[in-house]
């Protein structure tokens, strides 16, 4: 009876009634913005993590930083205090809990690091399961950065070949660039501490960050 009456109404009235019903139902529907729960494609994720393509090692990263390559966002997952003490130049501080609320876009290349691999993996998983495409983790995190880039230890022979010397010089240059130093046996003996340099240390880093890359959308 009710349906028959409804069918006899003019189209615009029917549309109006449907709209009102949808509006009333929506009051009881949940907030469309809260997407805390997500579906995860376990198979896809496990396959991705099986190969090593989602890892970036610190040499690559230091190379990009020196060359001013900036087609990625470097994210420091550690706590604020630790970040303030020292962080890899150009990194932004976003803790794991805040990852999804940050302004990271799904089609950006995102490189994560932390002081332990579990936190990085956590961040990687959260982003990956929320359909972020290019998520990478720095192998070994900040520790690896400290040991291999800032304070690389030299395994110098007594009579280094030209190749070894070349490599040695490069290590020293890179370490100096980021405010650290190459640790030869003499330095290790004298001062075994690996003090993190101040954040301002690599003052010369100039990123070729494309200005206004963030598109303003809208009509």
């Amino acid at each position: 009876m009710l349906l028959k009456n409804f069918a006899e109404l003019p189209a615009r009235k029917r549309i109006g009634i449907v709209a009102i019903i949808l509006g009333i139902v929506s009051i009881f529907a949940s907030n469309p913005f809260s997407n805390v729960n997500t579906k995860v494609n376990i198979k896809e994720l496990s396959l991705v993590s099986a190969d090593e393509i989602s890892e970036v090692n610190v040499e690559e990263l230091s190379d990009w930083l020196i060359k001013g390559k900036y087609d990625y966002r470097l994210i420091d997952l550690r706590k604020d205090e630790e970040y303030k003490k020292y962080h890899i130049p150009t990194s932004e501080n976003v803790t794991v809990a805040r990852l999804l609320k940050s302004d990271l876009a799904r089609n950006e290349k995102i490189i994560l690091y932390s002081d332990n691999d579990i936190t990085s993996a956590q961040g990687w998983f959260i982003l990956k399961s929320n359909n972020y495409k290019g998520v990478y983790v720095i192998k070994g995190g900040i520790e690896s950065w400290q040991k291999e880039i800032l304070f690389p230890s030299c395994t110098c022979d007594e009579n280094p070949t030209i190749e070894q010397k070349h490599k040695h010089d490069k290590l020293a240059e890179v370490a100096k660039y980021f405010g650290g130093e190459l640790r030869t046996e003499g330095i290790i003996a004298a001062n075994n501490k690996m003090e993190m340099p101040s954040i301002e240390a690599p003052a010369t880093i100039e990123l070729k960050k494309p200005k206004g890359k963030r598109k303003r959308e809208g009509c």
Partner: peptide
């Protein structure tokens, strides 16, 4: 609540029409 705003806008539209 989002839904209440939705309903208000819908009623506003119908009133407007």
């Amino acid at each position: 609540n989002y839904g209440i705003i939705m309903l208000l806008v819908i009623l506003m539209a119908i009133g407007g029409f």
